[in-house]
Amino acid sequence: MSGIALSRLAQERKAWRKDHPFGFVAVPTKNPDGTMNLMNWECAIPGKKGTPWEGGLFKLRMLFKDDYPSSPPKCKFEPPLFHPNVYPSGTVCLSILEEDKDWRPAITIKQILLGIQELLNEPNIQDPAQAEAYTIYCQNRVEYEKRVRAQAKKFAPS
Rank of each mutant, 00 (worst) to 15 (best):
C93Q: 06
L94E: 06
D19Q: 01
Q117I: 07
R141N: 13
G90P: 06
G90I: 02
P157N: 10
T35Q: 04
L38P: 08
P28T: 01
M36I: 09
E12G: 02
S89F: 12
R13F: 02
C138E: 15
L81K: 03
T29G: 12
Y137N: 00
V86H: 09
K65H: 12
K154S: 14
Y87P: 00
S158L: 12
V92R: 02
M39T: 10
K153R: 13
F77C: 03
K110L: 06
R104I: 01
L119T: 01
K154W: 06
A26I: 07
F24T: 05
R147L: 14
G55V: 07
W41H: 10
R13G: 00
G115S: 01
L81R: 04
T35C: 02
P80K: 10
D19Y: 03
F58E: 05
F82W: 10
Q111M: 13
V92D: 07
I45Y: 06
E12W: 05
Q11T: 14
Q117E: 09
A26S: 10
A156G: 08
T35P: 05
H20K: 04
C43E: 08
C138V: 08
E143R: 06
P21Q: 00
E145N: 15
A44R: 01
F77Q: 00
C93A: 05
L97P: 11
W103C: 00
E54F: 13
W53A: 01
K146E: 13
M36F: 06
A44P: 00
W103Y: 15
D66W: 07
L81M: 11
L81A: 06
A152T: 08
E118C: 10
I45A: 02
P28A: 10
K110A: 04
M39A: 07
G50D: 06
F22D: 06
P32K: 14
C75V: 15
L119K: 02
Q130E: 08
N40Y: 09
T51I: 03
V25A: 10
M36L: 14
I96E: 00
Q117N: 10
E132S: 08
E12I: 02
P79L: 12
S2A: 08
I45V: 15
R17Q: 03
C75R: 04
E99A: 12
K153G: 02
L57H: 15
K59H: 14
I112V: 13
A150R: 12
G50W: 05
V86I: 08
Y68D: 00
P73Q: 02
F64P: 06
D102R: 02
R17T: 01
K76R: 14
V86L: 04
K59Y: 10
E143I: 08
L60G: 09
I116G: 05
A26Y: 01
A106V: 12
C93Y: 02
I116C: 15
S89K: 11
T135R: 12
R149Y: 08
P88I: 15
P123W: 02
V86W: 03
E78R: 14
D67E: 13
S89Y: 15
G47A: 03
L120C: 05
R13W: 01
A106D: 04
Y144R: 02
Y144S: 00
Y137R: 03
E12T: 01
L6I: 05
P128H: 02
C75E: 03
K76W: 12
L94F: 10
K74C: 15
K146W: 02
K153E: 14
G90W: 01
A133K: 04
P79Y: 15
F82D: 02
S2L: 02
S70I: 14
P32H: 12
E78S: 11
K101A: 15
A106I: 08
I112D: 05
P32T: 13
P46K: 07
F58S: 03
L120S: 03
N124G: 07
L60N: 03
T135S: 11
S2Y: 12
D67V: 09
V142E: 15
L9H: 01
Q11W: 11
P32D: 14
Y144W: 06
M39V: 13
K76G: 13
E78K: 15
N40M: 12
G90T: 04
M36T: 00
T29N: 15
G56I: 02
K30Q: 07
L113D: 03
D33K: 02
I125M: 09
P105I: 07
K146T: 13
F82Y: 06
I116R: 05
R104Y: 01
N31K: 11
T29M: 11
